[in-house]
Design a protein around this nucleic acid. Structure first.
Length: 614
DNA sequence: AGAGGTCATGAGAGGAGCGT
DNA sequence: ACGCTCCTCTCATGACCTCT
């Protein structure tokens, strides 16, 4: 890159002379921070010199590299475009680098008739922004001979620029690393996390340990400080922000609040599981409503079943402690199992007195064979209450094994005043509450869809009863005829303006609006159909029922080398034939060496060895 | 959950042809 | 020789599938 010609007007970028910019490889740090104080990625927080006619480069690639940087900084994507070749020598003498929104989508794509999917969003706007880099006559240098600055569209912010396709490329070193990891059988997700670590990411396991494995806020704080220090992240604003709201998400802080032992992710995951068996991505909306009801019914049914189990069976006791029997009477079955588990495990712990202040004893509780981790449990003699630093009681709602170990040591074999039995986990939890189950069952149908469903269910019942005998049938048909007459009469009244649905609808809504919406809804109901079915992409599921002999498919077969045991994506022969061709071109003796050495590592049944053996 | 496969699609890149 | 438009081909990408 060279400095601009003297006859060009030298413009200032943030008050810095362009000449200076040229000397500093067109970039100068302006210490820019975004509104959150975040430092942008390298290159983004640096001002880039604007292109000008006559700007020189060593090569065409350098020109492209420069314009890419400039585009990323400005917030647009670029692509290579027209190439100009010498007609005489066929050597490239110029190339356009244009804004990625240059031109318009080709007509053949816009007016496609064989399209099976929704047309993707139009990405081009006919933008004219570009540079044309051409070869300087007589010398081996390249200059910008045309430059159009203005875009006909909004530019992306520097933060979102990396999402532009042109700026999503990985460096050659990163690509090499990906190849090496891929060859070593490392999974793509793992490769991405390695890349994240390699580019300044932090050790995830250490991070996870710091978040999930510490029990006390003080422990967390020292762990956090250690990690920040180790990776030099003290100034990272995102982490700073996370740290400032640590009370809201770090388990060590939230463990003192009752969450039924669930983290936020567990809650959403359990919801996922809840619906997974009933709906999937292709469930139409009409079916979703039905399936949702089914899922809800199944949940109520399960609850009733659990309730029945709790009320009509007795759990088997495993210890002689009275508190176990008390718990078996009070707790629901599931919570009793948890309590029992804690009680049994408490026998693996030893409690040693640390100190006693007035009537409050402090115990260190640890496993028999391990001194650490040690849990501090306080025991108040006057109230026979305990508290443990693991906060399990506060978080889950049942006493932990450490508390139980102390209680047993202090010969408290009954739960004092049932104070450790949270009402939520007792079999009487629903006493005094509205029975949602029955409420759900008796819900009067309000929407037209629910009315229809309800009538449908009753008419099925009617059909079943009416078909028992000719007499049953005659009564049913006679009744139905009377019913039809009655309903027809009602319809005439309805037409006069006495809509029965008026009763259900809120009186706050203007009547005219209501009538319009109702008619709209009703007319929609009569014609509402599933959206048109579009054939999905990908290999369609075979509708042929497989015979018993072909149920179990053999190992995979490579579509490239036709060998079993791998597929085209992992075909070494294909990979080597690609590498081999480049090795031949470079005639690098090492390349041949690498190929032959890789053969040694092959399994005996790989295509290479088979070929060698031939 | 992840690997591997198929398919649809448009971006990207370069070539052909023509006018200046 | 250059600059422009149009056309064609390849490849990356994403969606969605089955299979392990």
């Amino acid at each position: 890159m060279v400095e601009p010609p003297m006859d060009e007007e030298i413009t200032l970028v943030d008050g810095i002379d362009q000449e200076y910019l040229c000397e500093t490889n067109l970039e100068v740090s302006n210490e820019n921070h975004d509104e959150h104080g975040n430092e942008e990625n390298s290159g983004n927080n640096q001002e880039i010199l604007e292109p000008y006619n006559g700007m020189e480069f060593e090569s065409l690639e350098e020109g492209l590299e420069y314009y890419t940087k400039y585009a990323k900084h400005k917030g647009f994507g670029i692509r290579r475009s027209r190439v100009t070749k010498s007609r005489r020598t066929q050597v490239i003498i110029g190339q356009e680098f244009v804004c990625s929104k240059e031109g318009h989508r080709a007509k053949k794509y816009v007016n496609r008739e064989d399209r099976t999917q929704v047309a993707p969003d139009e990405t081009r706007t006919g933008c004219k922004a570009m540079i044309y880099v051409s070869k300087k006559v007589g010398v081996d240098r390249w200059i910008i001979s045309r430059f159009t600055r203005d875009h006909n569209h909004e530019l992306a912010t520097p933060k979102s620029a990396p999402f532009l396709r042109a700026h999503r490329k990985r460096t050659r070193a990163q690509r090499n690393l990906i190849d090496v990891l891929d060859d070593s059988g490392v999974r793509p997700s793992k490769i991405m996390s390695v890349l994240a670590t390699e580019s300044g990411g932090i050790d995830k396991s250490q991070f996870a340990k710091c978040i999930h494995n510490v029990l006390l806020p003080s422990e967390f704080e020292s762990e956090w400080a250690a990690i920040m220090g180790k990776y030099g992240l003290q100034e990272n604003s995102w982490l700073k922000k996370l740290y400032s709201i640590r009370e809201k998400w770090i388990p060590a802080y939230v463990r003192s609040s009752f969450c039924a032992g669930m983290s936020t992710t567990q809650r959403s995951e359990s919801m996922n599981k809840y619906f997974k068996d009933y709906v999937n991505a292709s469930t139409p909306m009409s079916k979703f409503v039905i399936q949702y009801d089914k899922a809800l019914d199944a949940r109520y049914n399960k609850e009733r079943e659990q309730n029945f189990k709790t009320m009509n069976s007795k759990p088997i006791l495993k210890t002689m402690y009275p508190m176990e029997k008390e718990a078996s009477i009070v707790y629901t079955r599931k919570m009793f199992r948890k309590f029992q588990d804690e009680l049994i495990h408490s026998q693996q712990y030893v409690a040693g007195k640390i100190n006693a202040v007035e009537q409050v004893y402090k115990y260190g509780v640890h496993e028999f064979d391990k001194k650490k981790p040690e849990y501090i449990v306080t025991f108040d003699v006057s109230s026979t209450t305990t508290a443990c630093k693991c906060h399990m009681f506060e978080f889950v709602g049942i006493p932990c094994r450490h508390q139980l170990a102390v209680l047993i040591k202090k010969k408290v074999h009954s739960i004092p005043d049932h104070r450790y039995f949270l009402d939520r986990w007792t079999r009487n939890a629903k006493q005094g509450e509205v029975d949602i189950t029955s409420d759900h069952d008796n819900n009067a149908p309000t929407s037209s869809m629910m009315l229809f469903n309800s009538v449908m269910v009753h008419s099925l019942e009617l059909s079943e009863k009416a078909s028992r005998s000719q007499k049953h049938y005659d009564i049913a048909i006679g009744g139905l005829q009377r019913l039809f007459e009655e309903l027809d009469a009602l319809k005439i009244e309805d037409d006069k303006g006495n809509s029965p649905t008026d009763v259900v609808i809120s009186k706050n809504v203007p009547e005219a609006v209501l009538r319009d919406e109702e008619t709209h809804l009703l007319s929609q109901n009569s014609i509402l159909l599933d959206p048109p079915h579009v054939t999905t992409k990908g290999r369609p599921k075979s509708i042929r029922k497989k015979g018993s002999l072909e149920q179990k498919k053999g190992s995979k077969k490579c579509s490239h080398c036709k060998q079993k045991g791998h597929t085209i994506r992992t075909c070494r022969l294909l990979k080597e034939s690609r590498c081999g061709s480049s090795a031949e071109i470079t005639s690098d003796p090492n390349a041949t060496k690498q190929v032959s050495s890789s053969h040694i590592d092959q399994d005996s049944n790989t295509p290479q060895n088979l070929n060698q053996g031939q």
